[in-house]
Design a protein around this nucleic acid. Structure first.
Lengths: 214, 214
DNA sequence: GTCTATAGCCCGATAGAC
DNA sequence: GTCTATCGGGCTATAGAC
């Protein structure tokens, strides 16, 4: 891999792990295995790292948004695949949201994209739920699917932080991911046909394993 | 107010607003209206500020935890009062959770207290829901009240951040508070008797107004 | 109890050799 | 494309006058 990409990967990893402000450029250079001055050959300043990672994030999010329900018979599997992509995205780019106060304003590219990303994301959740309702798997008033979509987003978006905060011991990240998926499922599991609920819970284990490998 | 208390209030306000790492002691001293060196007379170092604020937080949280349902006929009003206290606490001490990576380890006092605080907090939610179920206001399986309590905690704890992130324009903090209360209500509103739902929504407006004044 | 002056450190970033 | 050497600046914290 090119040095520039190694820097970006390591920066994203460290920012997520320790917070943007807590990662010194010296530590980043050391982690990459290059001299600190070499960073400034590839990027003008620390802020430019955020801009570059943001571009990757937008690409990743737009790819995830394309995961729509296409086959009614497989909506549960498709939903599970979508959740996996969503969880990956959240874990891989969490510092972009979390540390905004730290690195300052979002890049212009992200500011322009954000409202669309959030709006589309809500619509994406609603679409999956709609298909579940239409195929008789989920019993939920169409009018209230929007609220359910918001609640699901929040649980998935902040679940990792929540379980970290409450300090429960977890054997692995995979186990925590599985836990927030299970938690989001409790939002509507009581209105889901039992076979669908079981299939989702089974799918979550696979997702958790896949995310852990990342 | 004593200088020491003015420092603590201003520090908590600035930390919440800008993040612990982004508040320089020079800026804090200026905001309080004292010389920077004077800070180090009252506190040994920046970290000591966190310890002191933590003690206030523990006191506040333990006070909030005492809000239990006592009168079955007034459980909705009591629940609303509890939510108000919870929202205040979250907004007044949010940096303690959010910026932990920034200021390092929690104080020993908080580390010892945290598991109890979270456990009691879940029990508190469950108790209110239990009374609603017992008095026929809420139709929910007793077994699944724990999940509902977790979901409610997450929505209330991270709702402010979520609505800030998605960048929706809000006329005021009070309006956002009202919005996260309404959002958490959608978790169980469809199983709540209509009169109770209406009373809660009305109570939220009062809460929002009260929090705004803080 | 509050102030001024300043020490000492670490950070992000630059210059220039190779 | 990568390195070493170093700078200016902002930060936390100390010393000591008042």
């Amino acid at each position: 891999m090119k040095t520039k990409d190694r820097i970006l990967n390591e920066a994203r990893r460290l920012f997520n792990e320790q917070g943007f402000g807590n990662v010194t450029t010296a530590a980043l250079a050391q982690a990459v295995g290059i001299a600190e001055g070499n960073l400034w050959y590839h990027f003008n300043n620390k802020r430019a790292l955020v801009e570059a990672i943001t571009l990757d994030f937008i690409k990743s999010a737009n790819g995830r948004l394309e995961l729509r329900p296409v086959d009614d018979d497989k909506v549960i599997d498709e939903y599970a695949a979508f959740l996996e992509a969503f969880a990956r995205e959240i874990t891989e780019y969490s510092f972009l949201y979390r540390d905004q106060a730290d690195y300052g304003e979002h890049s212009a590219a992200l500011l322009e994209e954000l409202p669309k990303l959030y709006g589309e994301s809500q619509r994406q959740f609603r679409e999956f739920f709609s298909v579940m309702v239409r195929t008789g798997l989920l019993d939920w008033p169409e009018k209230q699917l929007g609220d359910l979509a918001v609640n699901a987003s929040i649980i998935l978006r902040y679940g990792l932080e929540y379980f970290r905060e409450i300090g429960e011991e977890h054997p692995s990240t995979a186990e925590t991911i599985r836990q927030i998926f299970a938690q989001h499922l409790t939002l509507f599991e009581h209105r889901l046909v039992p076979t669908a609920a079981r299939r989702l819970r089974r799918a979550f284990s696979d997702i958790a394993a896949a995310v852990e490998g990342a």
